[in-house]
Design a binder for these strands. Structure first.
Length: 260
DNA sequence: ATGCCAAGAAAGTCTTGA
């Protein structure tokens, strides 16, 4: 089962780019972030024509997540529990029925949190606390679980080309990294880090100041695996070349293959 | 210290991103 996460940065502006990548990469499951679309406006027909079931959780203009799957989906749910007043579309879950194992997959778009300090950073930290709670509940099922998406977290210095540029940024502040580490401490495996010990593997390059040309990137898109999922991990990768195409997203697809 | 770029909503630039 090939599972990918891709912050598409606007599905309307990137439909053809996504179709091209899906045809090449052939993921069974693709979790998308920043679709920036209401559910009714998502171009689902184009993806259904490729054999994908489409589940969206969108909103007007910003944020929004989706799951595309060629395998059967069960128990699709939306919204991160813990704050009924939160109207931002950042979380979707589904159980994917693999030929060997079912896998619970959460597609997430974690808040950016800038500027700091301020209400946006408070929202980010509160959201991460809610995610910690939700993850504890899911781990209690002792099933294969994949939490993937745009975490807006640079976990360690080796995950940024120029870490000193990020010292006061919400993506890298000690409180942000500590909250991410608390997630890992539940027993989760960072699939890319587990299989790519070297530094210099990035998933995001800013549109500005020639960040791509200078390889001034950061690694902020992650797939975290429960012990049962980590036991099934075969390969992983980052489709870096997608960033060099015409009108790209600022993120690239990141993926794993599970024996599920 | 700031703009550098890009998408979306909307018809002005402004908001947001990271």
């Amino acid at each position: 089962m090939k599972i990918a996460t891709f912050n598409i940065n606007g599905i309307k502006a990137r439909t053809q780019a996504l179709l091209d990548w899906l045809a090449e990469a052939q993921p069974d499951v693709a979790c998308l972030q920043e679709i920036k679309s209401v559910d009714e406006a998502f171009p689902r027909d184009a993806f259904e024509a490729l054999g994908y079931t489409v589940e969206t959780h969108g909103m007007k203009a910003f944020n929004g997540v989706a799951i595309l799957s060629k395998l059967p989906l069960e128990d699709v749910t939306r919204c991160l529990p813990g704050d009924d007043a939160d109207e931002q579309a950042r979380w979707i879950e589904a159980t994917v029925i693999g030929p060997k194992h079912p896998v619970r997959i959460c597609g997430l778009y974690l808040p950016n949190g800038n500027p700091t300090p301020g209400p946006k950073y408070d929202y980010k930290l509160a959201w991460m606390q809610r995610m910690l709670s939700r993850t504890r509940t899911l781990l209690a099922d002792e099933q294969a679980l994949v939490l993937c998406g745009d975490y807006n977290i640079i976990p360690q210095a080796e995950d940024a080309a120029n870490p000193h540029n990020w010292l006061t940024d919400a993506l890298y502040l000690p409180q942000s990294r500590q909250a991410y580490q608390r997630l890992l401490n539940l027993g989760l495996t960072d699939a890319i880090r587990a299989q790519n010990p070297a530094s210099g593997t990035y998933t995001y390059w800013d549109f500005q100041a020639g960040a791509w040309e200078r390889n001034n990137g950061i690694r902020i898109d992650h797939l975290l695996l429960s012990p049962q999922a980590a036991d099934l991990l075969q390969t992983s990768g980052i489709d870096k070349a997608v960033r060099g195409r015409d009108k790209p997203s600022d993120h690239v697809p990141v993926w794993i293959e599970l024996d599920a």
